[in-house]
Design a protein around this nucleic acid. Structure first.
Length: 484
RNA sequence: GGCGCGUUCGUCUAGCGGCCUAGGACGCUGCCCUCUCAAGGCAGAGAUCACGGGUUCAAAUCCCGUACGCGCCA
């Protein structure tokens, strides 16, 4: 075994990179890295109508954001790099043409003159007679003279690949084992369209072979087409790669994950405040597992342990709740400086950058264990930087009997107090409670509500220290003033 | 309709013939910690392993059917 492990991800640039595609990319990347092989990116843009440069950009951005890199493939929506360039299928059409000609010349593919109407009719009849609706091979045995006659009438044609009439095709699948398909049940696949262009299944075979792909890991939906592809490999005298068909990702209702279930694009998860590491880890676990039932992985760990055998055959439901838990885990593990850097776009959006007030390092650290999403960071620290806005609960707390008095006396007591720091404040305020004959809760809750506008928040005294005496005292007075 | 794939707690999964009175993780419930909310610690509820037949001394695990779901042919 000297063949180098080479994997690929080959998206059609007809939209964003969705969760399923992200997982496929990740698995291919992990497998290549694990085996010190190469990971290739190829753009399947033969659908000229639906393919866009913007999609290419979005897909490349998504993969980059996920923290995955490719060894060969596009650099941007136009250019690419690598020993098998080009990596855009539209730029490879002459290559496909060459192999198409070879197959036709060798009698392994043939011209089919059937029109769409004829094919529709064929299908309709077959259904009526309860036969499988597949192409009946009527153009397979046309003679040269019949062909020129038809072409003389101005008939256009597509090109079909001749499937063997009998026997079976075995697809070697690393996840599902050997899957067998009866050849006589497969129809002659169109490999070149009437509109003069190659077909997905054809390009795919040529490219994977020419690009020396050793393992094709892709979505389940491709399994049914694989026997045809395998036969094309054989017809061209090539050895098929090892296949691995991944099960699908489902939404909470058990149907294929789609827009209806919420975010499906990788970039949406970025914008919601998930960390790339979370996505890598979560997606790795969605359909793959190691025997130790480990949940949290470093990248090195994942690369070292990932294997195709551990991939699940049955579909998996995408669970945002677990995703959020995991994101919280990783946020907690992220050092504050780094976390603030990651949260910059969200802080910026919330207008919290460049405002006077305590150092973000201190305020963010105060709530570090609470964030599940980067996008939650601004909302949990904004009261340090923006005027107090009372939540209904806070309003209720402040509206309690004797609260105004407490706030005013507290303001009084604190305005002269030093040092204004955590431990000392706690001692002072507890003493204050004693002096006034109040229970701790009768003071702590209004104090929190008046200074933050909330009933839930960071640990009280350290929070006061960070907020600073001036702000605390003035907020106490303000809150008291509003009570009447 | 044909072919293919799948089916273990709500969810992700461990399990590859005896260690399973089916383990872990998320979520859920309760308790502890406590100035609130979290985080953390502890405890608990939760799966007749889709169903029905076999094979075997022994099956979640092997075989055959059935049902349901999904995919491809479109």
């Amino acid at each position: 075994m000297t063949t180098k492990i080479r994997t690929r991800f080959a998206p059609s640039p007809t939209g964003f990179l969705h969760i399923g595609g992200a997982r496929t990319t990740l698995y291919n990347w992990l497998f290549a890295r694990r085996h010190k092989g190469d990971f290739v990116l190829r753009i399947e843009d033969t659908d000229e109508v639906r393919s866009t440069g913007d999609s290419v950009t979005a897909i490349l951005d998504s993969i980059k954001w996920l923290g995955l890199n490719w060894d060969e493939g596009p650099i941007d929506e136009k250019t690419d790099r690598g020993p098998h360039s080009p990596y855009y299928q539209m730029q490879r059409v002459p290559i496909y043409r060459k192999y198409l000609d070879q197959l036709v010349r060798e009698g392994k593919a043939y011209r089919c003159y059937c029109t769409k109407e004829e094919l529709d009719e064929m299908r309709r009849l077959a259904q009526l007679e309860k036969r499988p609706p597949r192409y009946d091979g009527r153009c397979r045995a046309l003679s040269d003279s019949q062909r020129s006659a038809l072409e003389g009438q101005g008939k256009t044609f597509s090109i079909r690949f001749k499937m063997p009439a009998d026997g079976a095709t075995i697809v070697e699948d690393a996840i599902r084992g050997n899957v067998s398909f009866e050849n006589k049940l497969q129809q002659d696949l169109v490999i070149w369209k009437t509109t003069d262009g190659p077909t997905y299944n054809f390009c795919c075979v040529i490219d994977d072979h020419l690009m020396e792909i050793s393992h094709v890991t892709r979505g389940d939906e491709h399994l049914s087409n694989t026997p045809s592809q395998v036969q094309i490999y054989y017809a061209l005298g090539w050895k098929p790669p090892i296949f691995a068909h991944l099960s699908m990702i489902l939404g909470p209702d058990g149907s294929k994950l789609s827009k209806r279930h919420g975010a499906t694009s990788v970039l949406e998860y970025r914008d919601q405040g998930y960390l790339p590491h979370t996505m890598r880890n979560y997606l790795a676990l969605l359909g793959w597992s190691n025997t130790e039932s480990q949940q949290l992985f470093t990248d090195e760990d994942l690369i070292a342990k990932f294997n195709l055998e551990g991939c699940q055959k049955s579909p998996a439901t995408f669970d945002t709740v677990k995703l959020q838990w995991m994101n919280g885990e990783y946020i907690r593990h992220t050092p504050i400086d780094e976390l603030i850097e990651l949260a910059k776009p969200f802080l910026q959006k919330a207008g919290l950058l460049g405002l006077p007030g305590p150092d973000l390092k201190r305020t963010v650290a105060l709530e570090h264990e609470k964030f599940k999403l980067l996008s939650e960071i601004p909302t949990l620290v904004e009261f340090f930087y923006k005027p107090v806005v009372l939540t209904p609960k806070a309003e209720k707390v402040l509206g309690g009997p004797g609260v105004k008095q407490v706030l005013l006396e507290l303001a009084e007591a604190l305005s002269a107090f030093a040092p204004f720091e955590d431990k000392a404040l706690e001692v002072r305020i507890r003493k204050f409670c004693e002096e006034k004959g109040l229970k701790a809760g009768q003071v702590f809750h209004p104090l929190r509500a008046a200074t933050t506008g909330r009933t839930e928040g960071p640990t009280l005294f350290l929070m006061l220290e960070i907020m600073g005496k001036e702000t605390v005292v003035s907020r106490l007075k303000e809150a008291a003033a509003k009570l009447d």
